[in-house]
Design a protein around this nucleic acid. Structure first.
Lengths: 190, 190
DNA sequence: TCCTTTATACTAACCGGTTGGTATGTTATA
DNA sequence: TATAACATACCAACCGGTTAGTATAAAGGA
């Protein structure tokens, strides 16, 4: 693994554990056995490192969301389930990055916040569009508000980053099935 | 308002805006025009201040949840809707405190984290129990897992702290109705 | 009632320690 | 030998917390 990737990986773990502000660059370089000179050879600032972590996280999610949305043979329901699965599986593979993404965005400079928020909003608006289309197609309830449903889906999945342990008794696939069933079928018996 | 209350209020707003670690005690006392000595007259440490903010927030929510659960004439559905309303309305009244609660708990010392987590878990387990009872009573779907539904309800509502603006076009009451409908009836038409 | 004591509510000044960042020096590799 | 990849040493600024001291008010005794 390249030194830059080592620095990034160690940073994510430390940022997750202690937060961005309480993690010093000294902490980061000590974790991988180098010195501050090395850090500033690869990054111009602590903030730039945080920005790269954010960009990597959200652009990866957007790319994978896009491949789901392009699968025209899938129904709206199947696409929605696939996006839920994308996010829940991501806890397993990218949990630390996700938690840093949700918690530490405020420490980016304003321009970078704008960039990240635009991409984050795009992910949400893609879900909203999927729901709008499915409502129009008659597959989803006519009286739903697509924006609120999108926020609901994201709320359920993103909150899981805070409690779901993929190594626990319940597997990611079970959780995906349960959340999909809850959202699609509702709590009240049919 | 007492000086201690002033300090707490100013702190919540600053913690929300800049985060706990990036808010210095100097920032807090400057916001209300006193000096650091005043701060340490009322608090033993910055951490103690954070703990009091946390305690006030969660104990208030628990108390109000309890009054809902005690209303025996309400159905499970009505109780669940009342708890959703409790949390959404709280964004309006206690948004800053809520965001500080969700984001800054890690900065408490271990013993205090335990205390807060126990109360936070109690809030969730109360919802879980309500759902378990309603499933057994046949009011809710038999194939639901109460724990997952509780996490789902909390995910949807707590995530709203991050995006819902009570002063925007949509009112809190509208949002409560939309979320209740989504969770209870589901996305797929009946 | 007067005077002493004590409590309250602060202020100003300071301390040891840490921070992000920089300037410069050294080493390995191609 | 030139450049990439580091290490070393350092700085000015800032941090949470402490301390000594002060003005005002309340309480208590002769």
């Amino acid at each position: 693994m390249s030194m830059k990737a080592k620095i990034t990986q160690a940073s994510v773990l430390l940022f997750e554990e202690k937060g961005f502000s309480d993690t010093s660059i000294q902490d980061i370089v000590e974790a991988i056995g180098v010195t501050k000179g090395t850090f500033y050879y690869y990054f111009n600032s602590k903030e730039q490192l945080l920005m790269e972590i954010h960009l990597e996280y959200i652009s990866d999610l957007l790319k994978r969301q896009q491949t789901i949305l392009e699968k025209d043979h899938l129904s709206g329901r199947e696409k929605l389930e696939a996006i839920i699965a994308l996010l829940i599986h991501d806890i397993q593979n990218n949990g630390p990055s996700g938690r840093v993404f949700f918690r530490e965005m405020r420490h980016l400079v304003e321009q970078n916040v704008d960039t990240i928020e635009t991409q984050r909003d795009l992910f949400r608006l893609n879900i909203e569009q999927l729901i709008t289309d499915s409502i129009e197609a008659g597959e989803f309830r006519q009286d739903l508000r697509a924006d609120i449903v999108a926020f609901g889906v994201l709320g359920i999945t993103n909150y899981s980053y805070n409690w779901f342990n993929p190594k626990g008794k319940m597997s990611a696939d079970e959780l995906i099935e349960l959340f999909s069933s809850l959202l699609l079928e509702g709590i009240i018996p049919r």
